[in-house]
Design a protein around this nucleic acid. Structure first.
Length: 438
RNA sequence: GGAGACUUGGCCGAGUGGUCGAAGGCGCUCCCCUGCUAAGGGAGUAUGGGGUUUAUAGCCUCAUCGAGGGUUCGAAUCCCUCAGUCUCCGCCA
């Protein structure tokens, strides 16, 4: 959410900046609502002040044993008018709030201006894609060939966009998350957290998934219960990323200055409906309704958030470097960034079978955008509450990392070499092979 | 699932219809006193919004005592709904 004061003071600039990401700010509607709000609010508050003063008079009079009936009848007449104008004010503010909640964050000035994916800028390139002397397979053929990956079974259990892994492949998946968590907690100073996978609407509004992106989520109700009657909304949503529960830890909090910066890491499953991506990445593990991710979140002082963003990306990159997987870092252009982000780096890993780099991590500085929605603050140097800056990034998407390992570490005989850093997590196993089904 | 108790400011805790945004205590900040320490004295100490303003200064004002609704001229106090916490019983991994 943007600061309404900024909109009032500098609407032109805001509109221009938002245009960079292809968003058209509803200027006329905003101005109309704002001026209406101002009149109605001022009037309402005048009436309220009058009522409060008179009620106080009545109290004083009664305590002295005097007669208060004159004032009483006077105030009684205020009632209806007040109720009317209060209702009106509430409606206007709801409308304004709705408008504000649907406006994306302002892109940072360092974000390259552009329309789509095409305009993203390559910022770093690491590692050299391996050259294969044999006909390579994609991760689906490799996994299925080894008898460790079964999409048919997954489809039977749940449907499309689910997967089932068994034996050493399932273990490799687990090994990856352990390795990531250990690296981040032991080498990068993150606090490990275990979080709820079902969250309420306030949390989703806080990080920006609601109200605009409800169709991307899975909604959940307690057994037998339908949507609650009042607002027709489900009790919970499954988290689309651990960013939601972790970041919302500071919602409605004023944290002491000395507790900053905070760095949290959590491993969770993520659930996404993938509405609007029909037909895209239908094969394999790339785009699933359920996938695991190790998520990194920073809660920081506003002055240090861009420094924190660089660190965050670096932490995610470390994982790929240790796994010796080639990747590149892309700075997303204004048109390709997510709703809440002011600046985003994507890390893309090399996938030989697709002969391209694919997103495996997305690291964003949301500045105060989420904090303002969440009322997440800290007590600054002057002792005043001030909005925090929040950042999040994948470190990394586990399923896609698994895909990258299968494809980059594949051998001519269909086996897959286990990356050196993962061996300790695999009980010393060297490779995934048909016999290695455990 | 059943029965009961409860939810007030950073913390503890008073407050059952009226000058209550809220006594008192602790903590914290500043000042004074005491040559250190201990003790003592004084002042201050919630958050969000609106108006005014060059101003995140000041002034005026509104809202907030778990959340939402209601009764009333007036609600922390009364009524309803929901959420959460605690105790006991049942069930369960």
């Amino acid at each position: 959410m943007l600061e309404i004061k900024q909109l009032r003071a500098d609407l032109d600039q805001v509109t221009k900046t938002l245009a960079k990401r292809g968003f058209t700010f509803p200027v006329e509607r905003f101005n109309a609502l704002e001026s209406e709000r101002k009149t109605v609010q001022t009037y309402t508050q005048e009436l309220q002040a009058k009522r409060n003063a008179s009620s106080k008079q009545i109290g004083i009079a009664k305590s002295k044993g005097e007669d208060a009936s004159t004032i009483l009848t006077e105030v009684a007449q205020l009632g209806a008018e007040l109720k009317k104008t209060e209702t009106q004010l509430e409606q206007i503010q709801t409308e304004l709030q709705k408008l504000l909640l649907n406006i994306p964050n302002l892109p940072h000035e360092s974000a390259p201006v552009g329309k789509s994916e095409e305009d993203n800028q390559q910022t770093r390139l690491w590692g050299q894609p391996r050259t294969f002397k044999f006909e390579i397979q994609d991760h689906v053929s490799i996994g299925e060939g080894l008898g460790l990956l079964d999409f048919e079974a997954a489809a039977k259990l749940s449907g499309a966009r689910f997967s089932l892994m068994t034996g050493s492949l399932a273990r490799l998946h687990r090994a990856l998350t352990q390795f990531m968590l250990d690296t981040h907690t032991q080498q990068h100073g993150y606090v490990e957290t275990y979080v709820p996978y079902l969250v309420n609407q306030e949390s989703l509004r806080g990080t920006g998934q609601l109200p605009k992106f409800e169709e991307d989520l899975f909604a959940v109700n307690a057994g037998g219960k339908k949507e609650t009657e009042e607002n027709h909304s489900p009790a919970f949503h499954l988290i689309p990323t651990a960013e939601v529960p972790i970041t919302n830890m500071v919602r409605d909090e004023i944290v002491p200055l000395k507790s900053l910066p905070m760095q949290f890491v959590a491993h969770t499953p993520c659930f996404r409906s993938e509405a609007g991506s029909y037909g895209r990445d239908t094969r394999g593990l790339i785009r699933q309704h359920q996938f695991d991710k190790v998520e990194l979140v920073h809660i920081v002082h506003p002055e240090h958030s861009y420094e924190a963003l660089e660190n965050l990306v670096g932490h995610a990159e470390t994982i790929l470097q240790k796994l010796e997987l080639p990747y590149r870092v892309m700075t997303l252009c204004t048109g390709d960034m997510g709703f809440s982000a002011a600046k985003t780096y994507d890390i893309e890993v090399w996938l030989p079978a697709q002969n391209t780099y694919r997103e495996i991590s997305s690291c964003s500085n949301c500045e105060a955008f989420q904090a303002r929605r969440m009322q997440a603050r800290f007590r600054n140097e002057k002792g005043k509450p001030e909005l925090l800056h929040t950042l999040n990034g994948s470190g990394l998407a586990v399923g896609r990392t698994l895909v990258a390992i299968l494809e980059n570490y594949q051998n001519a005989d269909g086996s897959v070499t286990i990356p050196a850093v993962l061996k300790p997590y695999m009980n010393g196993l060297d490779q995934l092979s048909k016999a290695g089904g455990e």
